[in-house]
Design a protein around this nucleic acid. Structure first.
Lengths: 101, 101
DNA sequence: ACCCATGTTCGACTTTCATCGAACAAGCTC
DNA sequence: GAGCTTGTTCGATGAAAGTCGAACATGGGT
């Protein structure tokens, strides 16, 4: 299993923004911002595991997360430092934004 | 003609991000960030005027721009102060991001 | 070895969205 | 007022994206 984790600067800004412009993914990012590393299975956001897997793939390929393989599980974490370096203020702005509207 | 310009805090963050997650709209926002106020017709981004009108509507309804009616023309400007207040760092991060990838 | 748990991938379906031309509305200009 | 300019709105169309169940892959546990 090869995990495609692009260099952040090779990802179009629009892709990063698009990855964040989804309710489910934003919840995932918020959760990741709290704890350090999450097992994929700990996410329960009212979507099927297929959908969850899809969203985590989008986040990963947008350069937002890094995934570590641990047996049959995956451990996901935010690429916070890199993101803050390339897009200073972006994550903070999104995370401190009011959760509902 | 009534222009729907929502309160920024009533717009979901995802809507703001989605509005920015498009190449054409990002170009418009970049242009608006440079000059103060733009007549709608000055935008030429290789799309038809119908498409341009659509994108400006998306930006306006996401709370990103304010539009002033001037005869048959529209003058558009960024709601920079409000955006910086509610989402500090967001616009800067997006604007200073490398234009291509 | 068998079973189970965890994720991924594969269609399929539905919704959303970007795009356009054409029709329409509204205001200048002469 | 006739005509031009500027934008908006209206389908229509094609592409992208979210969602799911089912099938598959893989690794751990007993």
């Amino acid at each position: 299993m090869e995990l495609h984790e692009p260099e952040l600067r090779e990802v179009p800004v629009t892709a990063v923004l698009a990855a964040l412009a989804d309710d489910v993914r934003l919840q995932i990012v918020r959760a990741l911002a709290e704890g350090g590393e999450y097992a994929c299975g700990t996410f329960e956001f009212g979507v099927s595991k297929a959908t969850r897997s899809h969203h985590l793939k989008v986040l990963r390929e947008a350069g937002l997360t890094r995934t570590r393989v641990a047996g049959t599980s995956r451990c996901v974490r935010l690429r916070r430092e890199e993101l803050d370096r390339l897009y200073p203020g972006l994550l903070d702005a999104v995370l401190t934004a009011p959760a509902h509207s």
